[in-house]
Amino acid sequence: MRTVFHYIERDTFVHRLHPMVKLLHILLTLGLIVVPYWPTLRDLAALLVWLGLNAVLGTVARLSLRQFGFLAKILLGTFLFILLTQGFMYRGETPLIILGHLAIGGGVDLVITREGLFFGIILCMRMLTAVSALPLFVSTTPVSSIMAVLTSLRLPPTFSFMFVSALSFTSMIFEMWSTILDAQRLRAFDIESMNVFRRLSRAYVPVLTPLVLMLFRKGNDLQIALEAKGFGAPGPRTQLEVLRFTWRDGLAAAGLVGVFVLCLWIKYA
């Protein structure tokens, strides 16, 4: 999880792109998945084109799939859930798999329809498209550049700092979580060997108690460290990093918009 939200230092075309171009990529990705859609092959094709673009950008940025193993695990579970629920719930006409009949009320057929399954696939693809865009921004852009671009968008420094702190706290939470689990094993409490229900009923409260209390303490220390360095002082704040938009960035932005228009054409033409 940590590597998903961490900058990975490399010298690639994607890393060198102006963060504004990468923000544009995220906005276009969101745009593509929120525009009205129908579960058609055209819609699927448009998503595949954009996913292909993300795969190319990921390859150019030399991001390996292994880095996203944790995220992939979560997504796989979610996708399975979506495919099953949509398969059963979507009011389709073409039965694909008939599992049986439940004599509840007037009777319910347990049928996975082709339309339901396809709708589920489209939903999963949209989710995957959205999720795949985030590491392309976070893993290829130094936080200093992210802060600089957020500031250039005239967002208040507090907002930029909240973003940076969130990244820092994410890794801290994972380290603390792991230490607490170790401490519990030392007291014969093995959360990892428990099933989901036992974890929910018995395991998480003892983990969360020290975690939450220590996070409050760390948050308090962070406040002291920030304010003792003049955070919130009146007057303009100096931006250390100066970002320059080059012709390459312009071309990349135009290319992104071009692929976006292509996807819209595939969807609606």
Binding site: K229, F231, G232, A233, G235, P236, T238, Q239, L240
Partner: peptide
Amino acid sequence: GPANFGVPR
């Protein structure tokens, strides 16, 4: 710290 006080880059 110095950036908070607007010290030149």
